[in-house]
């Protein structure tokens, strides 16, 4: 398995290099202008100077390799230095990937935003899994029961109603009418004591639930389908014939086998946590990675968008590998040798 993982990682390097080039080229070729959002009162000559100061005057290839060096070598070194406190080489003058809009290092922006994204989106994912697995199990075990019908209906809603609608609906109900929950997420809030913890829970509640509903609908359907596949298998009948308790039959035999595909689905979904939830973050102003990306796109902040999309690409490649390895660990029928 270790050799397999190593081989896959080695293959990932040229793949990622190709992706980095495609991302860079696509974003670079797309018609956009970092000065487009500035007021028209700023005269064109000044705009041209701004563009030049952003390094747009250099040829494409030069910019690509600069970015590659900054992203692949300089930024990891910086992260290393920050963690360890060492000084490696000339760290003062090392060029970093700078965002055009903020003129600050892109990685610092990302690091600043990761906590809220991981808290809100990550928590919603955890909640989604915690809700979805039991619902899927019960729905399948009691197929066509009232519970299953209601579960199907709710997951249908979660699937088909976009998060901007559920988000807005929740805000109107819980913030405007009832006034129970804040509609705007305070990213500066620090949990110090019980009261501030309660406030944190309150402000996380709506965005987390909106996302959890969407995710849970999906995962619970996977879980249900996978359970149904397994429930009708002969080995379940075997387990019953052995005289095992029903709980053991369902939880040990059926659930374990049914979880194999679901776990890989869940693992493949993890990169989307880091990607944030563009719409939900925007609605509740969680201002995490998703909102950073959308601002970058709107403001033609190309280095920011390039870096973010490339990080997503890395995460997707890595979690694909992880999903494969998990599959191999869970299912003895699959061996990577």
């Amino acid at each position: 398995m270790a050799r397999y993982a190593l081989r896959r990682l080695l293959i990932a390097i040229p793949t990622l290099l190709a992706i980095s080039f495609i991302i860079f080229a696509l974003l670079d070729l797309a018609p956009s202008d970092p000065t487009a959002n500035l007021p028209l009162t700023i005269p064109p000559e000044v705009r041209e100077k701004i563009r030049l100061s952003l390094g747009l005057g250099e040829p494409f290839v030069v910019r690509y390799f600069k970015w590659l060096e900054q992203f692949m070598i300089n930024e990891p070194l910086n992260v290393l230095e920050q963690w360890t406190g060492w000084t490696i080489g000339d760290s003062e003058n090392r060029l970093r990937v700078l965002s055009w809009a903020t003129r600050s290092p892109v990685t610092d922006l990302i690091v600043e935003r990761l906590p809220q994204t991981l808290w809100v989106v990550g928590m919603s994912y955890v909640i989604a899994v915690l809700i979805a697995v039991p619902i899927g199990v019960i729905s399948a075990y009691r197929q066509y029961s009232l519970f299953d019908q209601i579960g199907t209906f709710i997951s249908m809603l979660g699937f088909s109603i976009p998060t901007f609608f559920t988000g807005l609906l929740l805000i109107v109900i819980f913030s405007v009418w009832l006034g129970w929950l804040p509609s705007i997420y305070d990213t500066t809030h620090v949990v110090r004591d019980w009261d501030s913890f309660v406030f944190q829970v309150k402000q996380m509640l709506m965005p987390t639930m909106v996302l959890a509903l969407a995710n849970a609908s999906q995962i619970s359907r996977f879980m249900r389908a996978s359970m149904l596949d397994n429930l009708n298998q002969d080995y379940v009948r075997t387990a019953r014939a052995k005289g095992l308790r029903e709980r053991v039959v369902v939880l040990v035999h059926v659930l374990r086998n049914s979880l194999i595909p679901v776990v890989t689905v869940i693992a493949l979904g993890v990169p989307t946590i880091f990607g944030g939830a563009i719409i939900t973050e925007q609605i509740f102003r969680v201002n995490g990675i998703g909102q950073l990306l959308i601002i970058g796109i709107e403001g033609a902040d190309i280095p920011l968008v390039q870096t973010l999309t490339f990080i997503f690409a890395i995460l997707i490649v890595v979690f694909n590998l992880i999903a494969d390895l998990i599959y191999g660990m869970l299912d003895p029928r699959i061996r990577y040798d």
């Binding site: 805000i171 405007v176 705007i184 609605i283 102003r285």
Partner: peptide, 22 residues
């Protein structure tokens, strides 16, 4: 001063005119 950014104009208006958070 807490100077919050992001979102859209309608919800910004709501946070002052309807929920009173801002």
């Amino acid at each position: 001063v807490l100077f919050k950014g992001g979102g859209d104009a309608a919800s910004a208006a709501r946070s002052v005119l309807e929920t009173g958070e801002f």
